[in-house]
């Protein structure tokens, strides 16, 4: 395939993806007759900032945490949510091209849209800009295995996306104790960052740091989440687990300190180098841990000054 062909293929793909392909389908909803107090409970339990209000599949409005706070402040009696919800809801149709949706996000400055079916106007999902980008990247991963030669075009495409100040978000779950799969997440992150046209030295540093973090999740915990956020000037990685925690963080950060059992050493890990290695690869790193609760590792890799800290 020639370079030109490839470019047009990327663009095609962008128009090919529909809102319905990338939206979140399992939406939490409330009914118009549900009480505000119940809605409050849902907000707290589900940690969401609002829900569509739906009556027999039909979208009646949306109710948000702001509506809830206003109701609280007014100290009014409990009432059905339909009295406090916003009725005039901006929606997208599931069959609209995702790119058109991106434009609407920008024009209207909304963070999310409710998605409805064009024929019966019933609610089918909810979508954020992040969902679109995530979906797009997933597609690219499928269709673009050898786009290395084509870095620049894809980069300029994502430059445009980035220019909207949109951050790219990726989230991965890592299963504990699964040694054979260990490294898959770091590998995926590496592939995606390369695809975004990020400089190879930076990609390498993020890859090494997330790989070390992933290994720690696999060795010491039941598993956890790795979240990557690509911003125009930096990459942020957050690794969280609800494992045993680290009793003495200072000690854990010392090179050579390790509690890895012998079988881990026999597999080539447990030199006590991982955290130090992560520090070396990142511009900033923070480690927080509570024994019995879990561990959170944050890394920040600057895209601007990054090249200096490791020779290549």
């Amino acid at each position: 395939m020639t370079a030109e062909n490839k470019i047009s293929k990327v663009q095609e793909l962008v128009y090919e993806i529909r809102v319905g392909d990338v939206m979140k389908k399992n939406v939490i909803t409330v009914g118009p007759q549900d009480r505000m107090s119940e809605f409050g409970k849902i907000l707290r339990e589900k940690r969401i900032s609002g829900t569509p209000v739906v009556d027999q599949g039909r979208l009646m409005g949306v109710i948000s945490i702001d509506d809830f706070i206003r109701w609280l402040a007014e100290r009014q009696e409990d009432c059905p949510v339909e009295r406090k919800m916003t009725k005039n809801v901006r929606t997208l149709y599931a069959d609209e091209p995702a790119v058109q949706a991106v434009n609407k996000f920008d024009q209207l400055g909304f963070g999310r849209f409710v998605v409805i079916d064009r024929r019966d106007e019933k609610l089918v999902g909810i979508i954020t800009k992040g969902d679109i980008i995530e979906g797009l990247l997933k597609k690219l991963e499928v269709d673009y295995y050898d786009e290395q030669t084509n870095h620049r075009t894809i980069q300029s495409f994502f430059d445009d996306v980035l220019a909207d100040k949109a951050a790219l978000f990726f989230q991965y779950s890592v299963t504990g104790h699964d040694f054979n799969k260990a490294g898959e997440t770091a590998s995926r992150i590496k592939t995606t960052l390369k695809r975004l046209g990020i400089a190879p030295q930076i990609v390498r540093r993020v890859a090494i740091a997330t790989y070390e973090a992933e290994m720690n999740l696999i060795i010491y915990t039941e598993g956890g989440e790795i979240r990557v956020r690509v911003e125009p000037h930096k990459i942020l990685v957050r690794v969280e687990d609800s494992g045993p925690g680290i009793p003495d963080i200072e000690k854990a950060l010392q090179p050579g300190y390790s509690t890895a059992p012998e079988w881990v050493r026999e597999l080539g890990f447990g030199a006590g180098m991982g955290l130090q290695n992560i520090r070396k690869c990142t511009s900033k790193m923070g480690l927080m841990s509570v024994v019995g609760k879990g561990t959170q590792l944050r890394m920040n890799i600057s895209l601007d000054d990054g090249v200096a800290s490791e020779t290549n």
């Binding site: 040694f179 054979n180 490294g183 070390e212 080539g268 180098m273 070396k280």
Partner: peptide
């Protein structure tokens, strides 16, 4: 020891090792 390799090795080198796992 893979962490050691990850920490100190420069790109493009040849790694000699007695380990054969996917890591």
């Amino acid at each position: 020891l893979m962490s050691d390799v990850l920490a100190f090795v420069k790109p493009e080198g040849l790694l000699l090792t007695g380990l054969t796992n996917p890591q």
